[in-house]
Simulated assay, not measured.
Amino acid sequence: MEITGSIKEVRAQVKEWRKQGLTVGLVPTMGYLHEGHKSLIDRAVLENDKVVVSDFVNPIQFGVNEDLSTYPRDIEADKKLCEAAGAALIFHPEPEEMYAPDFSTYVETEHVSAGLCGKTRPTHFRGVCTVVSKLFNIVAPDKAYFGQKDAQQLAVIRRMVRDLNMDIEIIGCPIIREADGLAKSSRNTYLSPEERKAALVLSKAIFHGEEMVKNGEKKSDVILTEMKQIIEAEPLAKIDYVEMVDADSIETVEEVKGRVLVAMAVYIGKTRLIDNFIV
């Protein structure tokens, strides 16, 4: 497995693979990889001849006073995980490689990025779309892999690819959870032992909502009220949002009909965590 921070070197390697008739998969990440990321790499390795993992903490998707400077990083551990999973190349650029000093071109989706996380992080998805479109241009993959935990991000990327006629297949992969149910996240490392225990209210509420739907409940207000009650019973938890939306348009819905996303963002202490399920 190779690692490079050079756009030129990534393009040269991919061109060589293309000459050999090989397919290429891309797994975009911000590093500090865990089992959730590994599940994406594992699937990409199964479905492509070569897999590129981008390992880049993207500064333009962090808002003012967000955790850019403290976001966890461990490139040595990332290399071990990628190599064990069978990735062929890690792209680990510095911000200066990705963004010129006078960088001024952005990619942005409307509507689908406005709700949920977009309400409290209004510039976040502009940063996500911009860096992902750059990665698509650099790697030119056949397929790209994203986790379902970031369900709105997945919907935004799919809309961008559709609207801009990008010749890339977007693959969504299931949420990977800890043994006690908490969705795996790089930000889980911020949690104190007490907060880590409190964070289980997210998955507890998710599982309860799923069970309600399985038992025939379709009204969003009934489902969301019970989910919120579970979270509000935890003193360390503060709700950002708990909503039911159309899984593709991210527009609010009043009942379970078609493909529906039930998503939440909750602060446990100062750490903002997300979780969801799809019907």
Rank of each mutant, 00 (worst) to 15 (best):
E255F: 10
M244W: 10
R126Y: 04
V57C: 02
V201Q: 04
T189S: 02
E234P: 01
A263D: 14
Q148R: 09
F103Y: 11
P93Y: 00
S220Y: 09
D55T: 01
T120A: 13
H37S: 01
D142S: 13
L261D: 06
M264R: 11
S54F: 02
E217N: 13
E66V: 03
R121F: 06
N48K: 12
K143E: 11
I231Y: 03
R162D: 14
A140T: 11
G181C: 12
M98S: 09
E2A: 02
E110S: 15
A100D: 14
Q13K: 13
V256D: 07
K79H: 00
V266D: 10
P174V: 05
R18A: 09
N188V: 03
A88T: 04
S203L: 02
G5K: 00
E9M: 02
V266S: 08
V57Q: 01
G63E: 10
A85Y: 01
S185G: 07
A233P: 05
E232S: 09
C117R: 09
K143P: 07
K143R: 15
R162L: 14
V53T: 01
D180C: 10
N188Q: 12
E108C: 05
V262T: 15
D240K: 13
Q152F: 07
V222Y: 09
G181K: 07
E255P: 06
I90V: 05
Q229H: 09
S54V: 00
I138Q: 01
D246F: 12
K79M: 00
I250V: 15
L154A: 11
D275S: 14
A77G: 00
L273N: 04
A233Q: 14
K15V: 10
L22G: 04
R162Y: 12
S185Y: 03
F146L: 08
E94R: 03
P122N: 08
T70A: 14
L135P: 09
V27Y: 00
S133N: 15
I157R: 04
R158T: 07
P193C: 12
R11I: 04
R259I: 12
L224A: 02
E255C: 12
F103V: 10
Y145S: 03
E66C: 04
L261V: 11
S203T: 11
K257H: 14
K119P: 06
E47L: 11
K38A: 01
H37Y: 01
I278H: 10
M227C: 09
P72R: 02
G172H: 06
P193F: 14
Y71N: 05
N65V: 08
K19E: 15
V161M: 11
V64F: 08
R43C: 02
V161A: 15
M264G: 06
L116N: 05
E96K: 03
V131T: 07
P141G: 08
D142I: 02
K80N: 01
Y71V: 03
V131L: 04
D180V: 10
T29Q: 03
M98F: 06
I171A: 13
A247Q: 11
K119F: 10
I231M: 04
P101F: 04
L46Y: 04
N58H: 04
R196P: 09
E96A: 13
F125D: 03
G269H: 05
V132C: 08
I90E: 00
R196D: 12
R272V: 08
R162K: 14
T130M: 09
I157T: 06
M264T: 12
L224Q: 03
